[in-house]
Design a protein around this nucleic acid. Structure first.
Lengths: 158, 158
DNA sequence: ATTTGAATTGCAAATTTATACATTTTTTTA
DNA sequence: TAAAAAAATGTATAAATTTGCAATTCAAAT
């Protein structure tokens, strides 16, 4: 569902930008942005996004993306790409078509997400091959891209 | 209080070693170790230790030390030192006396805690000068050492 | 040693978060 | 496109966590 992915990305943004200390607070913000949802769904979203609740000296408790911590320096924030044309799957890999010359920048962006799901990428001139880890489903890769790449959704045909 | 510091260190250890998914669970473990306390106190301890609760694909949710994430590679686990003799304060700094030749290893250990409170250390042969950041109280430094250095407490006179 | 103030804690209640279940929506398959 | 399966969501409730308050313990200062 398109709306869910938007919502997830919005939540990610909100948590990255401000210090939020309860689901109620976040829920209000989301509703003001036009997302019609309940606290239960938010709780599930946070679980899905692996958002941790940690003590904070200022606000008592704040939410934060788990990756922000654990891993690499960056690897968080939304990623924007340009030149994306289409995506297809074959042999359990994703083949992304791009405008000429845009492949490597897109591959670079994907690498920088540092996501578990992606074992690696190979970029030609107008094609990016995304190699998922064993056991990762096509669907997971699509979700990853939808959730993390601004506007990816909109540019999808099917 | 001596018991509190033991408890805090034990909690830290437990969280680092196993995957714990609720305060009740941790509380049981602590009680089996002889700590007589309530869940309310545990909640406060976790806040004090900045322990975050984060979603985990295996256990649903797990607790983890915030530092483990955020910061430097290590800087977590307990630290053990040898050769510590005494500690004193002067001019808002801590002067640790050690056995001859032990100063630098102790200073090294303290540096490795990567704690906010300590701006830096200087080690001679049998003396370590610990320089707290501005605004950090003597008490905070003592707590830090008590909480993180195994056996520090026991070796304290007063 | 006594007083005084700060820190720690338990208890009970409030708040916050998670989830079982039923239902709706979306996606997939035939 | 209809049927079947999977995913997403709301409602109500359970479970988990936090906190105000009072009491106790500890530490500092006289």
């Amino acid at each position: 569902m398109k709306d869910r992915n938007n919502r997830l990305m919005t939540i990610r943004r909100m948590i990255n930008s401000r210090n939020i200390s309860s689901q109620e607070e976040l829920l209000d913000m989301l509703r003001k942005q036009g997302f019609n949802m309940t606290q239960a769904t938010l709780s599930r979203d946070l679980k899905y996004l692996k958002v941790a609740k940690m003590p904070d000296s200022d606000r008592g408790y704040i939410y934060m993306l788990a990756e922000r911590n654990l891993n690499k320096p960056s690897g968080n924030d939304d990623i924007s790409i340009s030149g994306f044309v289409s995506i297809d799957f074959a042999r359990d890999m994703a083949i992304m078509k791009t405008l000429p010359g845009h492949a490597s920048s897109i591959a670079y962006a994907i690498d920088n997400m540092n996501s578990y799901e992606v074992a690696g990428t190979v970029a030609g001139d107008d094609t990016v091959l995304v190699i998922p880890r064993d056991g990762v489903a096509k669907k997971d890769i699509l979700n990853l891209l939808k959730n993390r790449i601004s506007g990816f959704n909109e540019r999808m045909k099917n």
